[in-house]
Write a protein that binds this DNA or RNA. Sequence first.
DNA 1: AAGTGGCTCAACCGCGCTACG
DNA 2: TCGTAGCGCGGTTGAGCCACT
Length: 344
Amino acid sequence: MGRSPCSDTNGLKRGPWTPEEDQKLLDYIKKHGHGSWRSLPEKADLQRCGKSCRLRWTNYLRPDIKRGKFSLHEERTIIQLHALLGNRWSAIAAHLPKRTDNEIKNYWNTHIKKRLARMGIDPTTHRPKIPSLASADGDPKKASNLSHMAQWENARLEAEARLVRESKPKQNDQQKSEGPVSVSANKQLNRMATTYTSTRPRCLDILKAWESTICNINGSIISFGDGSYLESPPSILQFSEDRQQAAAMSSLENMNKNLDFVYDAGGSAGDAWNIVGSSSVNNAGDENFIEGFSCDYHMNNNNNNNNNNIGGDQESSNNYCWNELISVVECRQPNTTPFYTRGC
DNA sequence: AAGTGGCTCAACCGCGCTACG
DNA sequence: TCGTAGCGCGGTTGAGCCACT
C-alpha cells in the first residue's frame, strides 16, 4: 500500500501561499521550532499539509536564504559541482550557502543548461556534443580531443563507482565508532559514497584513475563546438613520490581549463561569463561564498605564475588544493571533521 | 489593445530511505 | 522481519509575467 499524497487530504489548501499563511508559519517556527512537520499545520492553524509547510519553510521562509540573481562565481561553482556530482542538487546546495537546492535546480534548468546547450556542450555529460565535434573534417586533433574527453569522463565514473563500492563497509564502521549521523547525512553519505578513511586517503583511488588515463597526455588540445581550441599546458607529471599528486594536479588543471573554457566559449565581448583565470575569483564580496572549494582560485593562480613546475610552495599549495577538492566531494570542510552534515 | 508564445520559479508529486514499533 | 510514519530528494507542473506581433 502506498502512502496517500499530501493533496489527497480533504480540506487542505494548495497552491501559492498567502502572506497571512507565511506569517503563521514563521511565527510558529520561531516560537516552537518546526518539530514534526506532520503535526505542524494543525498546531500552527494552517490548512496545509506538513509537506507543503516544510517546502515553504525550506525554500522560501527560512531566514538564511539569499534571494535574487546568482553571481558569476555561484554560476561557475554550480557548473563545476554539477560536473562532479551530477543532479545532486542538495549536495550542490550544501556548497552554496544561502541557496536552496530548488533554487539551484531551477537556475540550472532555466539558465545554465540552455546556455551550455547553445554552446554545443551537453549539459548532462559536460562534454561537447558529438555532432559538432565528430571530426567530419578528419582533423586528428579533434578526434584525439574527443578521446581525451571521453577518457576523462570514464575516469571520473570509474573512480566514483569504486568509491561507492569501497565506502559502504567503512561507513558503517565509522558510524559505530563515532556515533549517530542524521538521516539526511546518512543518505548523503550513501549517495556520495565518499566516507573519509584515516588509514588511506580516499583520493588515491581517484588519483590512480586520473593517472591511468589522462596524465599520459602531453600538450593535448581541447576543442569545442564553435571550432575553437584550447591548448592545455604541457604535462606536469613527474615520477617521484609526488607522482600521484602531480598527476591529480595535471588532471584537475585540465578539468578546470575545460570548465574555464566553457565560460570563455559562451561569452561574447563583455559577457559576464568571461572570468577565466581572473583574480576576481576571490572578490572580497564573494569571499567564502563556496565553502570548502577554492581549488580553482589556487590553481589558476598557480598556472599563471608557475605553469610547468611542481615543488616548494606550489607543492604545498597542491596538497592543499587536492585536500580541498576531496573535501568538496566528501562534502566536508577541509581539515575539519570528515563527516558529512547537512548544510556543511 | 488583444493574442500568443516563451520564460521563470514556487509548489507539487512520487519515490526511496531510515527510524521505529 | 515486516509494516508504517516521516522526511528529503529530484523531477515535473502550471500560474503569472513579459516580450513580441
